[in-house]
Design a protein around this nucleic acid. Structure first.
Lengths: 232, 232
DNA sequence: CACGTAGCGCAACACTGTTGACATCTATGT
DNA sequence: ACATAGATGTCAACAGTGTTGCGCTACGTG
């Protein structure tokens, strides 16, 4: 029936949760070239599309498992021996890298919670960084959430973007060079004056600014822990 | 044909782009109670579901128009006479408010560009704020993008979250009080130690931290404009 | 006044995720 | 060793999504 499969795997089974997760990652790695659908997944596995429902309750549960596997890939890419700032930077870079590697997974999972092993490891990783920065208690929890939410949001947004059809993406990207260059300078003086600079901003630089802003906020908070965290 | 409708509206027409946009906003305002689908939209308009294709090329174009209308709603809610910091704070609050009012629209549009009038006004608004803060040229463009992307990402993430089915949301929210409380303290000492504080963090406080972090980054950048913007 | 066409309704298509019925085949209890 | 229960896989089908082609009506314009 539609029940969570037991742990005892039968030897005769062709499929397994691990094999399904890996096939999902293979499909997701092809980005917008290959849709991450149940039928396509069955094709990749050489099995009936509905066979995966014997190993996962629904596609959502599969997606969370796949995402957790991706979380592990992020953690593996972070070297040891770094200070808390460089650990957070490495985490940000790795998250973006993995999210762009599996955009279909990242774009859907960005506002979810996997509640699986590698998510625990990631939480512990961030908590360790903010603790080393000098935060503790409610402050550590608050700034952990700020870091985690910001990373997930940005990374998910970037993933959703690369997942768009090329023609849509081309239209969005060229807008800075087209529509934004033709605006009425009287109504929009700022856009008219900075049109060239706006078209030249790189996504990497923006990502950098946002990561460094968070790190600076953590540092500032650790320096004055008694004040209230909210706006003055 | 599948061509963009001309501007001369016939008097006998029951529908109009404006009426369709407003019906879309009404449906989107019902959140997860009412799915924002083409058929539901036709029902709301008292017309055939496919009638909207005489006014919009596809659902994507409609969505961008609806989003731009929501952008206008954000701008209307921002009072005059504020300094640049309070203008950005009011923008952030208004963006989140409108996004949560029309979650179905915000969650899809978060990584898109409308290229319509109210988006121009929003860009001009943010550019004015960062300019008043003391930034100019490439710096103003860079930090505009950081603010705009961060706002869109967070607001879209929040919208996607409230759009989830209540049972999924309940599972995600209770995870802090359940799974995260039962982790092995030896493997995850940070989670075990801060479990209580993690469960008590409010989304508003997290939003606040992220907005203030960006404002502080702009201020710091304006104070030392000669340095390189990237990580040291 | 005739005619081209915008506006709209209807039926249908391709594509999602998902479920129920049926068959097979393994693992286990006796 | 054998029978049975349950896990695994296949097939057909369903409800839901966005979208398109065809035909009709009624309007605005020549």
């Amino acid at each position: 029936m539609a029940k969570t499969p037991v742990r005892t795997r039968r030897s005769g089974s062709q499929l397994s949760p691990e094999a399904i997760i890996e096939a999902s990652l293979r499909i997701a790695a092809r980005g917008s070239q290959d849709a991450f659908t149940v039928r396509r997944l069955g094709e990749e596995l050489g099995a009936d599309p509905t066979a995966i429902y014997r190993h996962f309750r629904d596609k959502d549960e599969l997606l969370l498992s796949v995402a957790d596997r991706a979380y592990g890939e992020i953690l593996e890419g972070i070297p040891d021996g770094l200070g808390w700032k460089d650990r957070l930077r490495a985490l940000a870079d790795g998250s973006l890298r993995v999210a762009l590697k599996y955009p279909a997974v990242a774009s859907i999972t960005a506002s979810r919670t996997t509640r699986r092993i590698n998510e625990f490891r990631l939480v512990e990783f961030i908590l360790g960084a903010v603790t080393e920065a000098g935060l503790d208690g409610a402050d550590a929890a608050l700034y952990y959430r700020a870091v985690a939410d910001a990373l997930l949001a940005y990374v998910g947004q970037s993933a959703a973007y690369v997942l768009f059809a090329p023609e849509i993406r081309a239209g969005d990207e060229s807008s800075w060079a087209r529509e934004y260059r033709m605006v009425d300078p009287a109504r929009f003086p700022g856009i008219a004056r900075l049109g060239t600079e706006l078209a030249q901003v790189s996504a990497e630089a923006v990502f950098d600014v946002r990561v460094e802003a968070l790190i600076a906020a953590i540092e500032a908070r650790a320096a004055s822990p008694s004040e209230d965290a909210t706006r003055t």
